[in-house]
Design a protein around this nucleic acid. Sequence first.
DNA 1: CCTTATATAGAACATTCGTTCTATTGTCAA
DNA 2: TTGACAATAGAACGAATGTTCTATATAAGG
Lengths: 195, 195
Amino acid sequence: MKEKRTIQSVQKLIVAFFRASRRMPSYAEMIDILGVRSKSVVNFWINKLIDAGILEKDGKGRLTFTKRAFAVPKVGSVQAGFPSPEEESLCDIMSMDEYLVTKPDASFLLQVSGDSMIGEGILEGDLVIVEKGRQPKNGDVVIAEVDGEWTMKYFKRQGKQIVLEAANPKYPLIKPKTELRLGGVVTAVIRKYHQ
Amino acid sequence: MKEKRTIQSVQKLIVAFFRASRRMPSYAEMIDILGVRSKSVVNFWINKLIDAGILEKDGKGRLTFTKRAFAVPKVGSVQAGFPSPEEESLCDIMSMDEYLVTKPDASFLLQVSGDSMIGEGILEGDLVIVEKGRQPKNGDVVIAEVDGEWTMKYFKRQGKQIVLEAANPKYPLIKPKTELRLGGVVTAVIRKYHQ
DNA sequence: CCTTATATAGAACATTCGTTCTATTGTCAA
DNA sequence: TTGACAATAGAACGAATGTTCTATATAAGG
């Protein structure tokens, strides 16, 4: 009734620890994690994982995960057919954070209310990542204050005039008269379905 | 011309290291990171960060970030007005990964092609997170194989019959005749604007 | 000037780290 | 049974760890 240790099972245990603690376990801790009784056994399995390309050692000899170990596999497109586990082209997205939030210091999350950007696929309840202090390009989705109220709109130039346009025909075009306070540029949209 | 060290600047340096290396620096490494010449100075600042609630020590005395230190601040809704840095209600989203991918082992990413789910705010080029092996509820967005082709559709029950419906009127309702192979349930949508 | 508090330096320390060695156990085939 | 090999155990070791101590430099206030 002894379940054998495999590279996969060991990887799973260590990944679970890392996700929970946000750090690598020490060899001493891995004794308990892996259910063995000696650090040399831990070392044995660690070397296996290194050979398998799941772990690696950084410049200072510290154990780290390779991108492979952590990445959520990204497969082709929907229409291209469905993935078999083998052909999963492991993508280079190490973490959603790195992928989505390029400037953590200047970014914040905002929950969307209203349907003014529904044509852009931004629905009520979605989270958007907003980057402060960036100069918007024509057509960017921005957070802006108009007449004392904050809204999410397309940022567009009409000649020298700047206008704010909703992605919903039922909202009028906004031509700011005096000032236009920009809160930031929307760099990403996140929607999580309740489960 | 000496720039003073502050709690914020020290936090920033350590967070930067953590993001780059996915681990805490040792005190010896922090000597270089903080630009000081002694571990006792590092210890001095670390204690300050602990008092400030930015760092903490886990059960084994290991240094870890608190949720506060990492979270992208989440503020209210767009219409509710715009956030000032003070009123930022730091949200409990520690990382996008944790928030979006609840079952890392059973999930993968898929890039969307086509406009069949445009009514659901899922556009061409978006990434969706798909969870395998979950039983879909009525109205869930699923990846399914129909007549040898994979598509993304709403999963709906009509009595005992299961139908697949696009969120785009130009696509017909699909009533699978024989088999319905489910690839998974879409649990999240991610859109990143090119920058 | 002197006093006080803060920030930094450097050294010393016990503890823990990862590594490596030898020895033992278990498994499977011949 | 025997041999061969993989997996595990346990001990030993130098190196690195975080902590704590004393001492020095800097700045502000009286």
